[in-house]
């Protein structure tokens, strides 16, 4: 554990909590892509199956359980409890394509051709692109509530901080997992436009509206 990874994890945790608070307080999931949340739930489910086979630390286990539970809770809020507020007609990204491509890539490019390893690899590839339905939705509506943009900023920062963690681990521990590193770079890259808008608008107290 190093400082980049810890802050990255905290940022990830903060993102999930911000999202749950936003939905719970406003009794609404308006502006949130249910498809992105489904993809994140699939990511956690496939990746954290190793809860049963591989113990790393109390910290690791606790975080995994929290991420799994919170992602299922989010899905419940969006598709059941507050489903009347879900903007289905704006959440139109063809996310099936992301799943198909991630499955194919995981079968072709992995560290080891075993069930658990392919599921892990699939989760890494899928996570890299899971935010696309959400970003697409914002592009379509042209705006996002400020709390939604805080959520996205925290979520995007997490993988960016993990890149610093991977650089640190490469030099200090000789640890390199190039599947995670390359996917993490793609994942962080997808947020670049959003980061720019967040820093130039939201941080100055303006709303996140896209230039026409």
């Amino acid at each position: 554990m190093n400082v980049f990874r810890l802050i990255g994890d905290m940022s990830h945790l903060a993102a999930i909590i911000i999202l749950l608070i936003k939905i719970w307080r406003s009794r609404s999931c308006s502006g949130i892509s249910g498809k992105s949340q489904l993809l994140f739930t699939a990511v956690f489910t496939c990746r954290y199956l190793d809860l049963f086979t591989n113990f790393v630390s109390i910290y690791n286990t606790t975080m995994k359980i929290f991420f799994l539970a919170s992602s299922y809770a989010t899905i419940y809020l969006i598709f059941m409890k507050f489903k009347a507020t879900y903007n289905r007609n704006h959440d139109t990204f063809r996310f099936e394509l992301l799943i198909v491509v991630s499955v194919i890539l995981a079968l072709l490019i992995n560290h080891e051709f075993s069930a658990t390893e392919i599921l892990w690899t699939f989760s890494i590839y899928l996570e890299a692109v899971a935010i696309l339905p959400q970003l697409f939705m914002i592009t379509k509506t042209g705006e996002a509530e400020s709390i939604t943009s805080h959520y996205l900023f925290a979520l995007g920062s997490y993988r960016g901080l993990y890149i610093l963690n991977w650089i640190y681990r490469y030099y200090v521990e000789g640890h390199l997992d190039w599947i995670a590193v390359l996917s993490g770079i793609v994942q962080t890259g997808l947020y670049c436009d959003f980061f720019y808008l967040y820093i130039t608008r939201v941080m100055k107290g303006k709303n996140l509206t896209l230039p026409a």
Partner: peptide
């Protein structure tokens, strides 16, 4: 260069 032999990250 050591490739991760187990996944210890989240």
């Amino acid at each position: 260069i050591v490739v991760a032999d187990q996944h210890d990250e989240l």
